[in-house]
Design a protein around this nucleic acid. Structure first.
Lengths: 134, 134
DNA sequence: CTTGAACCTCTAGTCGCTAGAGGAATTATG
DNA sequence: CATAATTCCTCTAGCGACTAGAGGTTCAAG
């Protein structure tokens, strides 16, 4: 059996975060010592690793809850969650690329030469000249 | 003079959000009516538009606070904020692209054929086979 | 058996809003 | 000018996903 600190060390998830996951029903300790300290099995450790990785992939705790509750033979549902998230990520990438383009425009608005009016602030406020979409 | 609702309508920022911006010191109403309602000048409207646009660009309220407090003749500082944010966005894009690649790998791990074990859940938990970096 | 590290629960704070209660002011219509 | 509809006011509480700290207990090593 592992202590909460060992789980933390093994997965890189901080101790208070592990307790938080328990609070929201994502990961419960299999046992407690006589002195009320949490003890986890290997399965608990693996589950935390899974949660950690899914979090790194940007999934919400809600999505992860759905994932761990899933019947592993249910292909359709699993695919759906993964693909929903994938298209979500693609949308975010697209959005960020538009922001990137606009910030480039803004930075380019000022050449930094001395004795010259800096247009960056103006460009920041100027929605009209931006690409569109937000 | 504009009411808070007019500002909201003109900029697309919701009324409670405008009040929130006042609370955190980003935008104060120039005046109040006898009945205590907020009134804004044209300058207030423009400032809210600026905030809105900067928010859309993904800047934090802290960064915006720094931006509006800036001496407009101070090129260096303005450039620095804009470029810090730009490299920030680029880092986020890079990160999302790696997530995208990994999710593609995960979705591809299962061909969806009947009577076959779905590997998606496994792939989600399997950090070792992912590109690296997170 | 003592020390010190790790653990416990609980509350409150972070960011950027959003929602709702309960009431007052303003504006439009009859 | 009265009433009704709309907008406005303040205040509190909630969201997600943690993080920080207080104050106290238990565990493992020497």
């Amino acid at each position: 059996m592992f202590s909460i600190g060992e789980l933390s060390h093994a997965t890189g998830v901080k101790v208070p975060t592990i307790r938080y996951y328990e609070e929201v029903g994502l990961l419960e300790a299999e046992a407690r010592t006589a002195g009320n300290q949490r003890r986890y099995s290997r399965a608990g450790l693996d589950r935390l690793g899974f949660i950690r990785h899914a979090r790194d992939l940007g999934l919400s705790l809600d999505a992860i809850r759905a994932l761990v509750a899933l019947d592993p033979t249910n292909h359709d549902q699993t695919h759906e969650i993964a693909e929903t998230h994938l298209s979500d990520i693609r949308a975010r990438i697209g959005r960020l690329r538009r922001l990137e383009a606009e910030l480039e425009r803004i930075v380019a608005a000022c050449d930094g030469g001395p004795g010259h009016e800096c247009n960056i602030l103006e460009a920041f406020g100027d929605h009209d000249s931006c690409a569109h979409d937000h």
